[in-house]
Simulated scan of single mutants.
Amino acid sequence: MRHKARMRRTALTTAVLAASLSGSLTAGCAHSDGDDNRAPQHTATPAAPPAPGPQVAASGSPLVVKIDNVPAARPQNGLDAADVVYAEQVEGGLSRLLAVYATRLPETVGPVRSARESDLELLRQFHRPTLAFSGAHRKLLPQIGKAPLRAQSADQDPSAYFRATGKAAPHNLYLHPAKLLTSAPGRAALTTGYRYGPAPSGGTPTAARTLRYPAARFTFTWSAERHRWLVAMDGTSTAMADGARVEPATVVVQHVRIRDSSYRDVLGNPTPYTETVGSGKAEVLRDGRSFDASWSRPRATDGTSFTTAGGRRMNFAEGQVWVVFAPAP
């Protein structure tokens, strides 16, 4: 009898420990319903587990990083090395950046933040891009796992990320791109649909252009000396942590439909969805001038083409491109 009693006590203890361990693991993997100002509690994206170590970038497969853009996140790292930077509106009227790297990989990029639903549509134009992000809404994670991209969150490859000192979480998560890709894939990865070449005739001389979201502001000022647009965000000149200026050669104001998605943040604010498939009006800034244009992207797998008011393909200047998604009038 004593032996049977000991066996029952042992079985009961084992069951309690198992339940406790299961509860601990579940609690440790919980993810907030939205993107808030607390340190993220990541949930691994349900995608195939990454191969150990960095992967060789196939031609046509760029690195794309979701970058924080609130004042507490600045100065950022690595924006100056991006080939294309997309600026989008997020919850509360704030902004966030999506940087595309194809021709070179900086030493560090960040701060890295969470992905949004409309990012998946935007990234369909690239061939299986590597997406670096901090996490996502728990209901969005399965969509990211099914998307035709290589999802590399901080949970999936923690060795590629680090927490920097000097900034409070969640504005201090940074990426070592070389931990994800052994080399930059090259210009062939930029399947954006953009065409580069001489400027068209006409245009309006433009010294500066300011774009506003409800709680964010971008200003692009032309520097004839540097032959680039100098970027300022929320009234402050944009420079990286190492002092490098962000100086795109071309700035695109792309008027798109921005609607509420089915997701909300922890405060109940709806997450905006930026529609990048379709067509609409645009404004292209290059060489100190502004050109009225139209944009077209018939399918998610297509790049975006731009045409002048006269119906000709709009050429961009060689160098970095910034695309600011502005609400269509």
Rank of each mutant, 00 (worst) to 15 (best):
S262R: 14
P200W: 02
P75G: 08
E91F: 01
Q41L: 09
P148F: 01
R257G: 10
A232H: 05
N37Q: 11
P71Y: 12
S153I: 01
Q320N: 08
R212G: 06
T204G: 04
F325Y: 10
A151D: 02
G92K: 05
N69H: 13
P205A: 10
I144V: 12
S153V: 02
R6D: 07
N69K: 04
A300F: 01
E275G: 15
S159L: 09
S237P: 10
R104S: 14
V90F: 06
S183I: 09
P49C: 11
N69T: 11
F133C: 04
T276N: 05
T276W: 00
D35A: 10
P248E: 05
P198C: 01
L120E: 00
Q125N: 06
S59P: 13
T307A: 13
L17M: 12
Y161R: 02
A30V: 14
A168C: 05
V100A: 02
T238S: 10
L105G: 00
I144N: 00
A102L: 06
F162D: 07
F316R: 01
R2Q: 09
R245K: 10
S201I: 06
Y213C: 00
P248H: 02
P177D: 12
K146C: 05
T43L: 09
D80E: 15
N315R: 07
M233A: 13
A87Y: 05
L79F: 10
L97I: 03
R6T: 08
L98F: 04
R264T: 15
I144A: 04
A99Y: 03
T307L: 08
P198V: 04
R217M: 12
L21D: 12
H227T: 12
Q76V: 14
T219E: 12
S305A: 13
P142W: 09
A326K: 01
L131P: 00
Y174A: 01
T308I: 05
E121L: 08
T13P: 04
S290L: 13
V253S: 08
V112E: 00
Q89M: 15
Y101M: 08
P200S: 11
P177Q: 14
M7N: 07
G193R: 00
